[in-house]
Simulated scan of single mutants.
Amino acid sequence: MSAPTAPPFAPDATTPVPEHLRLLIIGSGPAGYTAAIYAARAMLKPRLIQGMQPGGQLTITTEVENWPGDTEVQGPDLMVRMEAHARAMGAEVVTDTVTRLDLSRRPFLVECDSGARLTADAVILATGAQARWLGLPSEARFQGFGVSACATCDGFFYRGKEVLVIGGGNTAVEEALFLTNFASKVTLVHRRDSLRAERILQDRLFRHPKVEVLWNHEVVEITGDDNPLGVTGAVLRSTTDGSVRPIPADGVFIAIGHTPASELVKGQVALRDGGYVQVEPGSTRTSVPGVFAAGDLTDDTYRQAITSAGMGCMAALDAEHWLAAQGLAER
């Protein structure tokens, strides 16, 4: 891997002296808040910078029924509770966004949108990933009310109902197959005449009696009702002749991939295909000693709140052990 290539800092006479931290956590989803809880309990006095979307993807999720201990909880409420827990343990939670992170020197250097400049002995990256959306106004209108990007999260709500899955790669086929556990019918809509998914997944999809594949079509609008707010179907356009047709559905799952928020460390830590941060197997250690990664930023397989939280715990413990080995745990 090439040497870190973060943009150089350009301090001048008016630049404040950076404040030093033992541990900085960047990101505020389940991974970030859990890391903050564990790090605070380890007396590391962590600071968590929330980023542009405090709480992460769960803040645009409605009912969460797979969080242990809660039969049902609203996504935003769960994140409010996590933040409160982190603060109660002693973590400092700051509403700001990291704009530059220089991992080429020690301690690591950080610049924030607010103008704050920091140094940190260790960093936990928990900036998450964002689902790729179609970009339709109607899609945004019904997000959380029939439009989803996570079948594992929301499939349970579509028992005995008909759903659409949009996409043609592994993600789309896996989502469609998972949804057959609940839905009465799953229609996979793909804009081409062949899938990009692995052949073994395609074979399973084509054999499944609940699945229909609609080739050479794209979604141009999600349709639905206002009271109560909910999806009733979609309008599809043929990519071969331009004809338009409506199709009824109770839910629409967008499965065209995710984009990890790794731009901050691109060229500085090793990344995997798709831009996910690479960590050592069984740990959260990245290719740069003292830098750890947790949650959807590194996980392209599970992408669940509970697995992100587990990785946040791992990252805090990994950071604690690393700081202790460097003689930096107490200052």
Rank of each mutant, 00 (worst) to 15 (best):
P4V: 12
P8D: 14
A10M: 11
P11M: 13
A13Q: 15
A13I: 15
T14L: 13
P18L: 11
E19Q: 15
E19Y: 08
L21F: 14
R22T: 10
L23A: 12
I25K: 08
S28E: 00
Y33A: 08
A35W: 00
Y38K: 00
A40K: 05
M43L: 12
K45H: 13
K45Q: 14
P54D: 08
G55N: 03
Q57H: 03
T59L: 01
E65L: 01
P68R: 06
T71C: 09
V73L: 09
Q74H: 03
G75Y: 01
G75A: 03
G75K: 01
P76D: 02
D77E: 14
M79R: 00
R81P: 02
A86K: 07
R87S: 10
G90K: 02
V93T: 05
T95N: 13
D96A: 10
R100C: 10
D102T: 07
D102K: 09
D102N: 14
R106V: 01
R106S: 08
V110C: 03
S114R: 02
V123L: 07
L125N: 11
L125A: 12
A126H: 01
T127D: 08
A131G: 11
W133Y: 12
S138N: 13
R141Y: 14
V147E: 09
S148L: 08
A151C: 03
T152H: 14
T152A: 13
C153V: 04
C153W: 01
Y158F: 13
R159N: 05
G160H: 08
V165E: 09
G167W: 01
G168Y: 08
E174H: 13
E175Y: 06
L177A: 15
T180S: 12
V189Q: 05
R191T: 04
D193V: 03
D193W: 04
D193A: 13
D193G: 10
D193I: 04
R196D: 14
Q202N: 10
D203Y: 07
V213P: 00
L214H: 03
W215C: 05
W215E: 06
N216W: 02
H217A: 13
E218H: 12
I222T: 11
I222W: 04
T223I: 10
P228K: 04
L229A: 13
T232M: 03
T239G: 05
T240W: 00
T240V: 08
G242L: 00
R245M: 10
A249S: 14
F253G: 04
A255N: 03
P260C: 08
A261Q: 14
K266F: 06
A270C: 11
G274S: 07
G274N: 05
Y276K: 02
P281G: 10
S287V: 08
V288T: 15
P289H: 08
G290C: 05
F292W: 07
F292G: 09
A293N: 06
A293L: 09
A293H: 06
A293V: 06
A294C: 10
A294M: 07
G295S: 05
L297N: 04
T301Y: 11
T301H: 12
A305P: 00
T307N: 06
S308G: 15
S308H: 01
A309I: 00
M311E: 15
G312W: 04
G312K: 04
A315N: 06
A315D: 06
H321F: 02
H321P: 00
A324G: 01
A325R: 11
Q326H: 03
